[in-house]
């Protein structure tokens, strides 16, 4: 996957509470890798383009390192065009299975949250 130059698909504000991003960044990164192997800046750009703000390298790389240790991603250095190479991250089968599981869980969780928030409030009820 390369850095896209198409028009951004911003999902709204990028100023999300840090707790929310901390909880979701893991499977968002797995999702960013689902289309194929990618590198640090491309993953950051992909997440930024989809409205999650600018993820710092100090947040992204420790996460990906933990995922590599856990066997969810593999890494490979590929030669650059006349310059230094790039480190590519790729989903493993375990990583793909984990992404599917976490995505389903998240959809159930966000659905439940939305349904609860959409419920009319019963002010004055005891």
């Amino acid at each position: 996957m390369e850095v896209s130059t198409s028009s951004p698909q911003v999902a709204g504000s990028v100023d999300w509470p840090s707790d929310w991003l901390r909880a979701t960044l893991g499977f968002l990164c797995l999702r960013a890798l689902s289309a194929g192997p990618s590198y640090g800046y491309a993953i950051i750009s992909e997440l930024e383009r989809h409205g999650f703000g600018t993820i710092k390298g100090g947040t992204l790389y420790p996460l990906l390192t933990r995922y590599e240790t856990a066997g969810l991603v593999t890494t490979e250095w590929r030669a650059g065009d006349g310059g230094p190479g790039r480190k590519y991250f790729a989903l493993t089968e375990t990583g793909r299975t984990e992404l599917t599981r976490l995505s389903a869980d998240w959809l159930r969780f966000s659905g439940a949250t939305t349904r609860y928030l959409d419920q009319p409030t019963m002010e004055g009820s005891s």
Binding site: Y41, I44, K56, Y61, P62, K87
Partner: peptide, 28 residues
């Protein structure tokens, strides 16, 4: 190498992109 790669791509200073070196080493 991976940190330098990201700094080349973003043009940002290392401290801003990764935070203090001690914290980054610990977080990895």
């Amino acid at each position: 190498a991976s940190a330098k790669e990201l700094l080349r791509d973003t043009g940002q200073p290392a401290e801003k992109m990764f935070g203090p070196a001690r914290d980054y080493a610990k977080a990895l």
